[in-house]
Design a protein around this nucleic acid. Sequence first.
DNA 1: CTCCCGATAT
DNA 2: ATATCAGGAG
Length: 224
Amino acid sequence: MEPKKFKPTTQQMEDGPERLNKIMVELEKLYPDAKCALVYKNPLELMIATILSAQCTDVRVNIVTKDLFKKYHKAKDFAEVEIGELEEMVKPTGFYRNKAKNIKAACIVIQEKYKGKVPGTLEELVELPGVGRKTANVVLGNAFDVPGITTDTHVIRLSRLMGLSSNTDPVRLEYDLMDIVPQKQWTKFSHMMIYHGRNICNARKPDCDNCSLRKHCSFGLETE
DNA sequence: CTCCCGATAT
DNA sequence: ATATCAGGAG
């Protein structure tokens, strides 16, 4: 029988809060100024930018919204927009028919039900067309200072690689992370994970050799 | 589960 | 050519 090669597992590392704490310390060192990368001036612009960010880089969203927010300002403007015109403007972000339709529909609701102001609770936000839990948490965390963990593609991927949770379902993962991350850090944690997911631990080729989280990461240890 | 979908890196 | 990008709805 072949001697088993040593492969560290999540159980063999520091587990639970202790390991997460070390990851948080490293993340804080790497990204002390981590914040929302989307450019916006108010909750409405952030909501729209976040809807546009689905399956699209924030860099491209910011290019599109630069012109978009120059042309339209209030919820009323988007509620009354010519849909074809909006489609053309958001086309580079992909899914442009859905996104244009959702932005217009959401702004109609905001205009009629909320007097033009974006609502500030999770329950109200997720009722808006095109606004799911992730988008709602981005708006709450950055425009309303309500702590929230955004389980986007980066947070899901890194959480799995780091062994922070076995759940890949966004909602279950969100609750798992809320259990182990201090509530005051929820929004910042999301931003730091996203920065790291872009800079080092990207999906195509995670750069473990240059990752200072490697010794606290189940994937990093297993691929040493 | 599938569909929506353009732009870029590999 | 294929995978991926701050997802959401049916």
